[in-house]
Simulated scan of single mutants.
Amino acid sequence: MKTIVKLLFVVICLFAIYFSAANSADASYAVIDAETGRLLSGSNAHAQAPIASLTKMWTALVAIENSNLDDKVVISRQAALSEGSSIYLESGEKITVETLLYGLMLRSGNDAAYALAEHTGGSLEGFIDLMNEKATLYGLKNTYFTNPSGLHHDLHLSSAYDTAMMLKIALENDTFRKIATTVNYKSIEKKGVTWQNKHRLVQEQNGAVAGKTGFTKAAGRTLATYFEKDGKKVIVVTLRESNDWQVHKHLANHVFSQYDVVTVAEKGEYKATEDTTVSLNKPIKLLLNKQEEQGIKNVIHLSRSKSKYGIWHVFLNKENIYSTRVTLK
């Protein structure tokens, strides 16, 4: 771990504080810092494209946040007859939200996605509204959902970057993280069947911690993977990449070899003005390569009002790459 010793502080008075690897021409990818969401590497990273079953990461998060894990879901005929990949739910069967979530994330069950949507949203349409509202809330500008499973629809689109951000956001939820990092799950409700995570890199447990697979004829192969190594955390997403397993390992290893975890500001108190002290409650650590370390500046925004808080920004040259709220004394 490295530390940037030289810190530059700029106090700005404000009236208020608001808080490839690609094989084909239309392939895209994004590699982001899993802590901050900063795009580290990419190709067509913001281009809209179908994402297939990577949709289910967002479906899982919305279901977790709007239902109880021990809720019993009565499987409808429509859910049981869902097109595509399945965990073989039967009409009239009662099964918990928790089991459906494991079937959704590990086995990519479209029937599980449909059942969760009906239960959580009151209807398929109601759940899709929840998905899109949450995407808007998190600023996923290139994302729009028309279903909870990722089956092809001309308007059901996202981007490699937005999809990577979906996984970042979802992993902040402890329940999602527990499910998404599971390699094998034995379902008591489904007659003791064991579900193995379809994500081959997660199965290998060699740096890949969580993720999701996807495929439709229209989308091609899609893949999202969260990697950890030596305190470095990145998320890789590829869309329409046929050699995705190898590409993900290559992209993650490249970032791990080129970037270090750098402490750009230590935890503590800093004198911002003659009568104002800024308290940073935890150190700011970012993934930076050697060239970027030279371009880091720390900027503090203060309010003219008697607010107890300010905003600490980290700029890489002229780009704001990280912000956090700080206490003023």
Rank of each mutant, 00 (worst) to 15 (best):
H199N: 11
N132E: 12
S158H: 05
I95P: 05
S53D: 03
A224L: 11
A34C: 05
Y309I: 06
D33M: 06
K212E: 07
I179V: 10
S149V: 05
I169C: 00
R107C: 01
G220W: 01
T120F: 00
G220K: 05
V193I: 14
D244S: 04
L101Y: 09
T273N: 06
E269D: 08
M1V: 10
Y270A: 09
K94P: 04
G295V: 01
S257A: 06
T276E: 13
L328M: 08
F215L: 09
M165R: 07
S303Q: 13
S187L: 02
H153C: 00
T277Q: 05
E293I: 09
E35Q: 08
N147D: 09
E266P: 11
L69F: 10
H119K: 02
V183A: 04
G192Y: 15
L286P: 12
M105P: 08
K134M: 07
G92L: 01
L157P: 12
D162F: 09
H301F: 15
H301Q: 12
G121Y: 15
L280I: 00
N173E: 13
A160L: 13
G150W: 05
D70N: 12
L69A: 01
K190E: 06
Y270T: 02
T273Y: 09
K72G: 00
V299S: 04
F9D: 07
F176R: 01
R38Q: 02
E133S: 02
Y309L: 11
S257D: 11
D162Q: 10
N206A: 11
K271I: 12
N320V: 15
T136G: 00
I188L: 11
A45E: 15
Y102N: 07
V299G: 02
S43Q: 15
T36R: 07
I169Q: 00
A16H: 15
L130V: 09
I179G: 02
T143E: 05
F227Q: 03
W245D: 02
T163V: 06
S149F: 03
V262L: 03
A265P: 04
K285G: 05
T225C: 00
H301I: 13
E133L: 09
K229W: 15
E241I: 14
T216A: 06
G295D: 04
D26A: 10
I300M: 07
S43K: 15
L201E: 06
G103M: 09
F215R: 03
V11S: 11
M1W: 15
M165E: 10
Y138E: 06
Q203F: 13
Q196F: 08
N44G: 02
N253C: 03
V183I: 13
M165T: 09
I17W: 15
K249V: 13
T277H: 04
L81Q: 12
L54P: 00
T324Q: 08
I128Y: 01
E133P: 00
A80K: 14
E172H: 11
Y161L: 14
L89M: 09
A25Q: 12
A265L: 14
K198A: 02
L61Q: 14
I321Y: 04
I169P: 03
G37Y: 12
V183Y: 15
K186N: 08
S43H: 14
I128N: 06
L8D: 07
V314G: 00
S303H: 13
